[in-house]
Nucleic acid binder design. Sequence first.
DNA 1: GTCTATAATTGGATAGAC
DNA 2: GTCTATCCAATTATAGAC
Lengths: 210, 210
Amino acid sequence: MSATDTGIAAPTAPTVKAESILAAARRTFLASGFGAASMDAIAREAGASKATLYVYFSSKEELFGAVIARESERYAQGFSAGDLDPGDVEASLTFFANRFLRLLLSPDIIAINRIIIGEVVRFPALAEVFWQAGPERVRVQLEGFFRRAAAAGTLDIADTRLAAGQFASLVRGELHQQYLFGLGKPDDKALSAAAKNAVATFLRAFGTRK
Amino acid sequence: MSATDTGIAAPTAPTVKAESILAAARRTFLASGFGAASMDAIAREAGASKATLYVYFSSKEELFGAVIARESERYAQGFSAGDLDPGDVEASLTFFANRFLRLLLSPDIIAINRIIIGEVVRFPALAEVFWQAGPERVRVQLEGFFRRAAAAGTLDIADTRLAAGQFASLVRGELHQQYLFGLGKPDDKALSAAAKNAVATFLRAFGTRK
DNA sequence: GTCTATAATTGGATAGAC
DNA sequence: GTCTATCCAATTATAGAC
C-alpha cells in the first residue's frame, strides 16, 4: 500500500493466482489427461475465469508444459542412494526397492506416467524432461551404489550401468505395468513382498559369499 | 447378381467397407491417439464418408474399441513357448527373449501401448482386454517353460510364476520404458545384446551347474 | 449403402468493461 | 488483473437424396 493507493481493492497478487491456476491445472490434467481436460474445467477448478488463465499462460499447451515440468521436478526429489551402506547390500537394496516401488506406484506418479506416455507424439520434449528427472536419475543413484559395493567386494558386478538397469527392472516387475493399465493396486504387504523378491533374485545373480 | 438385379451398381459388399474403415481407423488412431484422431480424418483415410462410418460403428468410442480389440487379438498370436527345449535353457531363453523384445518394441505394439495407457481412465475395459491377450499370455507361456525346466533340473526355480514375471521384466529392461517415452529406438545389435544380458543375469540367479 | 450437406455442441482463445 | 460475454474453428453425429 503506497500513498498513491487508489482505494480500489487490490487484486490478488499475481503469483498467488498463477499458483492456484497451476494447481488446478495439475489436478485436472492428472485426472483427465490432456485431451479430455478443458480450459473451462481448469478455470472452474481454479475459481478464475478463462481470460485470466490466458493472462498467465498463452495456450493450453503451455499450461500443460508448465504442469509437467513442475511435476517432473518433484519426481525424484531427494531420491538419493548416497546414504546406503555398501557393507550391507541386502538391507540397503531392500530399503531402496521399497522406497522406489512406493514412489513408482503412487497415484500421482502413475497419472503423470500415463499422460506423458499418451502424449509423447504431441509433446516429445516433455517426455525427455521427465525421463531425465525421473528414471535416469534413479538409475544414476543406483549405479553409484553398485560401484561402491563392487569396489568393497560385497557385490560381484562387472557392468554397473547394466546392473542398475536390471535391478530397477526387477523391482518394477510386472506391478508397474499392471498398475499403469489400471489393474488393481497391490496392498502394502504385496509391495514389500515384491521388493523382497526382487532383491533376492538380484542377490542370487550378483551377491558374494561371505 | 440375381434375376431381380435392378441394374444399379451394386454397392461395395458391407464387410469390405467395414474392413477398410477398420483399417483406416487403426492407422489413424495408432498414429494420433484417440483424442487427436477425428472421424473426418478416418473417413478420408478410408475413402468413405462420415455417414458411412456411422452405419457400421455407432460412435467414435465403439470404433476405437473395435480397433483395440482386434489389435489385442493380434498381439501375441502364435507367441508360444511350447516348442522350446528345457534341455538347453540358455538357447531357449535367448531365442524367446529376442522374439519377445522385438515384438515389444515394434512400432505397432508401442503405439497401441501408448494409446491404451493414455486412455486407461476413459476405457478401462480395453486395458483389461489388452492385458489378457498380451502380457498375461506371455507370462503364462514362460511359466509353462519354467515348470518343465524346473522338473528337468535345468533351472533351479521354486516359484515359477514369480520367475516368469522376473524374466519378462529383465528382458523388457529399460528399453521398453525408454522407447515408450520416445527416446530413440535401439538398433538390431543393441536388441540382441539386451536379450543376451537379460538371459545371462537370469541364469546367474537360477541356472544349474552341469 | 453411400453420399453431400448440415445440425448441434464443444472448446480454445479474445475483446472490452471495470 | 480480473471478469463477462462472445467469437470462431473443429468435431461428433445425423437428415435426406440417390
